[in-house]
Design a protein around this nucleic acid. Structure first.
Lengths: 348, 348
DNA sequence: TTGAAAGCGTTACCAC
DNA sequence: GTGGTAACGCTTTCAA
């Protein structure tokens, strides 16, 4: 099959020599087959196969100045929304002849910057970025090098196209759901106020509460982080309160926190959903490993990815002078599950 | 901040001119700062900053013939095990100064081949591959170009290092769990016999059944695919059977199928875990969106990723003549949840 | 310590 | 149609 290991890969010139044609002809055969006589083409292809030749994309990008690679850096693929986004973007990219390269920033702005730099150095055609905070600096760097950036899931001052989900509506839907299920005393649970989606969700929650008039009592408990462990730790006082003293609904600002909270409550003997309804907000299936399935809000990741890649491709094929940045907003949807469905009403 | 958009990015020669040194000196400043006089270095760095210079990695890779990028292609990141693998690999790669680039083959051998080709063209240093079937062809191609490949989660004839989880043990643990929980009539549920992990799991199931003597009645139902929808469709006859006629335990060969099966059973009025215990096998949190939390087997993805990247880095730094391929096998662990925990025994 | 110059593998333009 | 040949931007060796 494969001959001896050719430590040095075959080059176009090797193919040319073997096929008995010139280097330029091989290049033509590769890039504009129609401009080459069929017989010659065949000889070239035979030589390519025989040598196991694989074109060097680095040289190619260097020579042409263009690349068919698009980079995507997301907060963390541990959050399944970003996996969905990646899948949606991937699909659209491939259909258009582009490759999507993925990198996870692991929740760190520095790491995000390193990956942006990496893709910049790799001279990708464009970048999809799902940041966690104002990333004008990173966006600006790419843009000043002529590489378009589309932001996802973040609304900031950056000068770029973006696709977001209406996070105020996320909070609104969540709060209204608990109210409709009979909660009169709701605790908004979780930290992360430095993250924009969380801020918006809080605003939506407020709107739902106001709509419900004075009927609802609300307070807030902060967690130290957004992990299940943080949720479990911070829920202890609530779990320890007397039945009459504790909230009947826990609105968690992320799914990860919700899972931890449920674990903490049940450990302390508070039943979910029997004694308290609990829900999450961000459809992070990766977090769904608790004992109870979680009501949450679907973030439509697939569509975010598809839309964002669509905007990027559009920008790629439009003269910069004619391009106008756009902002697309998608509506979230609630997904009701066991954690807010007390036994009597529970589907069997 | 950023000046006019320099449609053409700054090159080393631009930096050299601005700093008043030669091109070679700038390159030295970039790659061997210690060999450059501090004052010169500073002038160079100022120029770099001023011009917003970003090194062209394509040119660099082309000139040196080496790359600090490693590619990973996995079946699909919709399966959370592969996300875990990627995170583990990422961590180890970065610590060693490598970048990990991710691509999802979306369950298609062709797509996998295209990404392998892509990484081959990009001249990555090495490749992590989580294939779904014999990929000797892809492995061989990379290997013959001097690029090491480490396989993950697959045991095939390929000539390469690999990290696998003991899938026979997966099946064994699953079956023994159901037996211990009192099941006497178990249906092994799901298709995918063309996939190696599934084959191994079946073997382990058989071993557990044999160990239990003649006490256990077993049969098998095939699904048409591995999706929740396939599981839901195929479970209909079981759900329709009279209580005395149906199994008391359903051992699903993947989590995705299990979720579908549970949905189908409950829709038909069969309670899980009340009337029947159901479990999955592959710890795919992405599938966990049913009404009941799922007992499953943890696949230790993080460790697979870390170990595989470790092997790859080792191979990268060993002369090919001295390298000997290794196979590392990790032991799975069971995670018990609601779908196999009937009410009486259920933790509250 | 710095500079000049020869590649790295492709592409693309221009002759033939 | 095909064959030269000059870039592309960087690294690295060798001299100065």
């Amino acid at each position: 099959m494969t001959d001896q290991l050719p430590r040095r890969p075959a080059r176009i010139s090797d193919v040319a020599r073997l096929a008995g044609v010139s280097l330029g002809t091989v290049s033509h055969a590769l890039n504009h087959p129609s401009r080459v006589r069929p017989a010659t083409l065949e000889r070239v292809n035979d030589a390519i196969r025989e040598l196991g030749f694989v074109r060097n994309a680095n040289a190619s990008t260097l020579a042409t100045g263009r690349s068919s690679n698009i980079g995507m850096v997301a907060i963390a693929f541990g959050n399944s929304m970003f996996v969905d986004i990646a899948r949606g973007a991937q699909r659209v990219a491939r259909a258009a002849g582009y490759n999507l390269l993925l990198a996870g920033s692991e929740d760190s702005y520095d790491t995000q910057g390193q990956f942006v730099q990496f893709f910049d150095e790799a001279r990708v055609a464009g970048l999809l970025l799902a940041p966690m905070e104002d990333s004008s600096e990173h966006v600006g760097r790419m843009a000043s090098h002529g590489r378009p950036v589309v932001l996802m899931n973040y609304d900031g001052p950056e000068d770029a196209c973006r696709v977001v989900v209406d996070n105020e509506q996320v909070g609104y839907l969540a709060a209204r759901h608990l109210i409709e299920r009979g909660c009169r005393r709701i605790t908004v649970f979780g930290g992360g106020d430095e993250f924009q989606p969380v801020q918006f969700r809080r605003r939506g929650i407020r709107r739902a509460i106001e709509e419900a008039g004075n009927a609802i009592e609300v307070d807030a408990v902060s967690t130290d982080g957004l992990t299940p462990a943080a949720g479990e730790a911070a829920v202890a006082p609530i779990a320890a309160a007397a039945p009459g003293e504790r909230p009947d609904g826990l609105l968690c600002l992320t799914d990860a926190i919700a899972i931890g909270a449920i674990r903490g409550l049940r450990t302390a003997g508070v039943d979910v959903p029997g004694d308290m309804l609990v829900m999450g907000c961000d459809h992070n299936t990766q977090s769904w490993d608790g004992d109870v399935t979680l009501t949450t809000i679907a973030m439509r990741g697939l569509e975010i990815g598809e839309t964002a890649m669509g905007l990027l491709l559009e920008e790629l094929t439009t003269p910069p002078s004619e391009h106008v940045h756009r902002r697309v907003e998608l509506e979230p949807r609630i997904e009701v599950r066991a954690s807010t469905t007390p036994a009597p009403a529970r589907a069997r």
